[in-house]
Design a binder for these strands. Structure first.
Lengths: 362, 362
DNA sequence: CGGCGCGATGTTCACGTGAACAATGCCTGG
DNA sequence: CCAGGCATTGTTCACGTGAACATCGCGCCG
């Protein structure tokens, strides 16, 4: 196969420029249509359509002729016409704030891969700055875009807090939200992950565990903090004050500088691996050995975390599975034609134990 | 604004189910069309079209009436019909191997943002495993997808090496390739970046610089290695054997284990920050102090690199600018209607000096 | 005072596809 | 030998939009 066959915009090789038809000086007709193929193959356009869609009931010889004509002209079905005919686009819209975070980009990748396997494309609708206006703009644009359903990767309460709610009839799946009572939500089991991290540290013998959260606006961050607190309470341990970060390594570093001065702190649970990296640096620079003096656990299990110094104990998130379930969720909605079924679908996590945790030194 | 207005798939609030028309038991008509709005507003559908597109020559009162009807019914223009009418989709396809690498995901994000600003959406076409078959499949799918142009983020020679070439008439911009003689290529100035890194190390007094490359299939990796070699030669320095990695931190760690045994090695240039992280870990575990015993320079300037131990000196890539120029390039092609103008558009780099480099200890 | 021009609105049609129905021709059973 | 049936192919039309052209009515100018 030669990609020249693709012929996205190029005129057909033979230069078959439909001369006679309407359009005087305007836009030239660029694409090859079924009618062109039909004319060359000496059949009706309906027969071309049948061949194109693999329908039965076309004589073998005729089929060959049509296929040959298609190849000669470089015919590609026009998906706009198809979408118009069928009333759907085979496309899923994905709305998100940023691809910069590991979690988002890996989820999106999994969504794209899974969607492709199901014959769907995905259209990305990024919101660079999460202002109310930008969110609204994105949703408006989404309404105009050719999508059959939408996956929202963000804190839905950012929407609810404003004058915005998702339309009830739209096929939507949401990630990173607690709106399971109203929407179909797929997410990593944040609480379980946090529990695993805290219990691991307590089991090692630490009296308590400090916590470095992500931004307050993140639902995932809230969930992790909440589960951390509850797990400590359930174990009857004191709950140290929460440190606040913004997911970035630098914010982790800043928090680490403060934490390095806390003599009683022997264990920290960071809400993601980047911030854990910042903690490691801060502790290193302040002569607090990890894990001898202080243990650190992260969240996400980004590939780099195995090469942190020391290699990081962290909670593994299965982003691929999250993406897969998102796509399955919206496709179910599309195919069953029903409303979005509220409910939360939690993907389990697991703890990856490496070298950044150990029993307390003293 | 209430997102209920969006009405992607939901029937109009009033339940205006077009009863009489064709379609007996088949698919129900779900969306609101111009005709529905026209009927409610008591005008012709053409007038609705004019209002919808902001054309002049509609009486103020009529316009208000139409807008009111649109709002009542929750009208959204059907983009499939528009695309069919106009012959274009306002969508750019992006083909890539993986979103997992920092560079790719940030480039894609920039592309999406810039495209959105220009009124275009982007459709992601991922290729999970870069086999010839998968690549071909992606291009075929792309041919069927509703895109006006394509941005390819990968090593184009992977295509050329097979029986695949990009169609000459298609609007294409390529990233990570040297095919500037045939395609319109946008890329970071890899050679300049590598030169900056090597010269920085030589200027510090190192006799020579070792190099850890990325995968052989990556053009960026080849370019960096090539520039590294040439810069050393130009300075009359010996060229040490090349170490091979695969962009991952773990591969950097493996290379670092080997390198730690090289007594003469005082400076390493890693082809990306992840591998540099692996080097740092290996050197740390083998008691080779960075930067006292050995200096390390990375490439990319990922946000985390400022919190490596020690903070990494690295070459900053402006991914956002690359994305921006990709979109501009592709839009220029679409708007001018011409062929892809071959040529290479290089985005400059800059060296970010942190704590992982110093004059050689001895 | 009548015709002309122009602004506002309506009508028609094509974009490319594919479902529904119609037509054609060949084969088989009575 | 003819009718009926089936396999194959053709014809018509609608999907929703918007350009091109047609029409209508009003005001202005000669």
């Amino acid at each position: 196969m030669d990609l020249h066959d693709l012929n996205l915009q190029a005129p057909p090789p033979g230069g078959a420029q439909r001369g006679g038809s309407g359009i005087p000086g305007g836009r030239r007709k660029q694409r090859v249509s079924m009618a062109d193929v039909a004319k060359l193959a000496g059949v009706s356009s309906q027969t071309v359509s049948r061949v194109s869609n693999g329908h039965p009931g076309v004589f073998g010889g005729t089929r060959e002729q049509v296929l040959a004509a298609m190849r000669t002209l470089g015919y590609r079905p026009n998906s706009a016409a198809r979408a118009l005919r069928y009333g759907q686009f085979n496309t899923i819209g994905v709305i998100l704030f940023s691809l910069a975070s590991t979690g988002n980009s890996r989820t999106v990748e999994a969504i794209a891969t899974q969607a492709a396997a199901e014959g769907y494309g995905i259209t990305l609708i990024p919101i660079d700055v999460p202002t109310q206006d930008n969110v609204l703009g994105a949703f408006t644009r989404m309404g105009e875009l050719a999508v059959d359903a939408v996956i929202v990767i963000m804190e839905i309460h950012l929407l609810d807090s404003g004058r915005v709610t998702l339309p009830p009839g739209v096929h939507v799946v949401v990630v990173d939200s607690d709106a399971g009572d109203r929407y179909s939500v797929v997410d990593t089991d944040q609480a379980e992950g946090a529990r695993l991290a805290v219990r691991h540290l307590l089991a090692l013998g630490h009296q308590t565990v400090w916590h470095l959260t992500g931004p307050h606006s993140s639902f995932a961050s809230q969930r992790r903090a909440e589960a951390w607190r509850r797990t400590l309470r359930e174990a009857g341990r004191p709950v140290p004050p929460v440190l606040h970060g913004d997911w970035s390594a630098d914010s982790g570093y800043a928090a680490g500088l403060a934490l390095a001065e806390e003599p009683g702190c022997t264990a920290v649970f960071a809400a993601n691996d980047q911030m854990a990296l910042g903690l490691l640096r801060a502790f290193h620079e302040h002569g607090r050995a990890v894990p001898e003096d202080i243990s650190v656990v992260g969240f996400d299990d980004i590939p780099d975390s195995s090469c942190f110094i020391p290699p990081l104990t962290t909670v593994h998130q299965d982003f691929a599975e999250v993406g897969r379930r998102c796509v399955q969720g919206v496709l179910r909605q599309i195919r069953e034609g029903g409303e979005a079924r509220p409910g939360t679908d939690l993907v389990p996590t697991r703890l990856v134990t490496r070298a950044s945790t150990a029993p307390p030194g003293r």
